[in-house]
Simulated scan of single mutants.
Amino acid sequence: MAGIKTILVSPLEWGLGHTVRVVPVIARLAEQGHRVIMASDGRSLGFLRLRFPRLEWVKMPFYPVHYSGNRHFLFSLIPQLPGILQAIRKNRLQIRSLIKEHSIDLIICDNRYGLTAPGIPSVFITNQLWLKAPRGIHWGEWLGYRIHLRLLRGFSEIWLPDFPGLPNISGIQTHPPQLPAKARYIGPLSRFEGVVPVKPEGAVPPDFLVLLSGPEPQRSILEELMIRLLSEKGKPAVLLRGLPSADPESGPVIEQTGCITMISHAGDPHILWYMMEAGTIICRPGNSTVTDLILVGRSAILIPTPGHTEQEYVAGHLAGQGLFDVCVQDKIESCLANIRGRDGS
Rank of each mutant, 00 (worst) to 15 (best):
I137A: 05
K5Y: 09
G297W: 05
V25Q: 05
G194F: 02
I260H: 02
Y313V: 10
P167K: 03
V20P: 03
S97P: 14
L143I: 11
R241N: 09
L115I: 09
P82L: 15
F73D: 01
R112G: 10
L29I: 13
M226P: 10
I221C: 14
Q94P: 15
D268N: 10
I281V: 05
P164K: 03
E232C: 05
P269F: 00
G316C: 10
L240H: 07
S288G: 10
S10T: 15
K233V: 14
P11D: 06
H265D: 14
Q178I: 09
P161F: 03
A133P: 02
P206R: 01
H317R: 11
Q311P: 00
S288T: 12
G316W: 07
L295A: 06
G46Q: 01
A183G: 06
A39N: 04
Y113T: 15
P53A: 00
G15D: 09
P244E: 07
P82N: 14
L149I: 09
Y113L: 15
G187A: 05
V290I: 12
I78G: 03
R43M: 07
I303D: 12
I254M: 07
V198E: 15
G154H: 10
I78H: 05
I99T: 02
A300G: 13
L45G: 03
L243C: 13
R96K: 12
L16A: 09
P217L: 07
T126L: 03
I107F: 00
P236S: 15
R150N: 14
D207L: 02
G234C: 05
H102M: 09
R191G: 11
I339M: 01
Q173N: 13
T257M: 08
F75Y: 08
I158H: 04
G286S: 06
L85F: 11
I120G: 03
P134Y: 02
L272V: 04
N168Y: 06
V25W: 00
G46Y: 02
L336K: 02
E277A: 09
V290W: 15
I4C: 15
G114W: 00
I120R: 12
R228G: 07
I104C: 08
P61W: 08
Q311A: 13
P121D: 03
P118D: 05
Y145N: 08
I78T: 12
L189F: 12
P197R: 00
I221P: 11
F192E: 13
L93D: 12
S76Q: 05
G144T: 02
V196Q: 11
E101Q: 07
E56D: 08
S97A: 11
G320Q: 13
L166W: 13
L323D: 10
V36E: 01
E255T: 15
L50M: 04
F192N: 10
G171L: 05
V326H: 13
E141L: 06
L293T: 05
G15Q: 12
R35E: 03
R51M: 00
K5G: 03
M38H: 03
D268R: 03
I104Y: 05
Q32V: 14
D41K: 12
W57A: 04
G320W: 10
Y63S: 06
P161Y: 06
P217H: 06
